[in-house]
């Protein structure tokens, strides 16, 4: 176990660019590596990914292991886990982090089984006990009602998947220097038992919520589907995207992909309106990192006010129409002047 050293981050590449969560993990991994006084490494697999290696260094890594091979063109558990296990056995990291994306979770679960080590799922807080060289990975449990710190004392590497948009990426620094290590591994297409036949991107989804600058989100407090129209109207006049709570989705007022929270989308817009939303932990989990949060709720004790930058205690059915009216007047007054498209 003592021979295991260094912090590793799996770098996920999607469509020729590095996933945001991998950059966030390089930020978080940098802190752990500095505390432990060990190097931070990225592990990047794919086809024609070599040109991205520098970005990994600019984002905080001291070194990058790259396997660039035609068989790795698309993510597949078998080919990716084979590479990752081979590298981990050869270089023996002590900590290994993955983004908690569909592919990151899939890969980490398979690798943990083959390396016979522990894997903490969906971590939202990371720290390290320097003396014991122990990763402290904390995750929400029981529907987010509580946090649990998971430890892996006797097995190495200590592995964790980490939720996207929780950790902070470092500023890209093109002056950073690091080492790029290209690894040659033997992979044969004939050995693969799965084939990716087709990849379909749903651009509308990504553009509408995770990338939105402004989100108007509504909850059961709007009363019924008619009341919920106010959310659509407000979003319309200010050019925002619409989201909502799970209860609203279950009531059929919104589509499943518009659910925000632990079991829905995680969003980080510049402005987030939470209207008629109580602020259950599972909802807050998905929006708390928004820059400016405005909450409207008639219950002064609603937990949503604990995360709101500005809180308005009042009746949404009264306030929102007035807000819409103000914006509509504004647009009349100013003519085309205020339109930013």
């Amino acid at each position: 176990m003592e021979e295991n050293q260094g912090v590793w981050v799996f770098i996920e590449v999607n469509d020729g660019s590095i996933e945001g969560v991998s950059l966030e993990l390089l930020g978080a991994g940098r802190k752990l590596a500095d505390k432990l006084e060990v190097p931070l490494s990225g592990v990047m697999l794919g086809k024609d990914v070599m040109p991205l290696a520098n970005e990994v260094i600019y984002a905080g890594a001291d070194q990058v292991y790259v396997v660039d091979h035609p068989v790795l063109k698309n993510y597949r558990t078998e080919s990716y886990m084979k590479c990752v296990c081979t590298l981990a056995e050869k270089y023996k990291p002590e900590i290994f982090l993955y983004g908690a994306t569909p592919n990151g979770k899939d890969l980490a679960s398979a690798v943990a089984t083959d390396l016979s080590t522990g894997l903490t799922a969906d971590t939202t807080m990371l720290d390290v006990d320097v003396e014991k060289r122990l990763l402290e990975a904390s995750r929400p449990a029981f529907g987010g009602n509580i946090m649990a710190t998971i430890l892996c004392k006797k097995h190495r590497p200590q592995m964790a998947t980490v939720r996207p948009k929780v950790m902070k990426a470092l500023e890209t620094d093109e002056g950073r220097k690091g080492v790029i290590i290209e690894e040659e591994l033997e992979l044969r297409e004939e050995d693969m038992r799965t084939k990716v036949l087709k990849i379909v991107k749903d651009v509308t989804k990504k553009a509408s919520l995770s990338e939105a600058h402004v989100i108007v989100a509504g909850g059961k407090g709007l009363g019924d589907i008619q009341g919920f129209q106010l959310i659509h109207e407000l979003a319309e006049v200010i050019g925002a995207s619409v989201g909502g709570t799970r209860d609203v989705v279950e009531a059929g007022w919104l589509k499943h992909e518009q659910q925000i929270g632990q079991t829905g989308e995680t969003v980080t817009p510049k402005i987030y309106f939470a209207i008629g939303i109580s602020g259950a932990i599972q909802h807050v989990e998905g929006m708390k990192n928004s820059e400016l949060i405005i909450a409207i709720n008639k219950d002064a004790n609603a937990p949503i006010f604990d995360v709101a930058t500005y809180g308005i205690v009042g009746d949404a059915l009264e306030i929102v129409p007035k807000l819409i009216k103000q914006f509509k007047e504004l647009s009349k007054e100013k003519g085309g002047e205020m339109s930013y498209v």
Binding site: C152, V307, A308, G311
Partner: peptide, 29 residues
């Protein structure tokens, strides 16, 4: 046979919240 253990359980970090916008509905808007 389990490499991981639950080290501790704790309540999620308490959040503080910001300003309240007070006054009549019109003034709030």
């Amino acid at each position: 046979g389990s490499p991981t253990i639950v080290g501790k359980m704790f309540s999620p970090p308490k959040l503080e919240g910001g300003k309240r916008i007070e006054g009549s509905t019109d003034s709030q808007v």
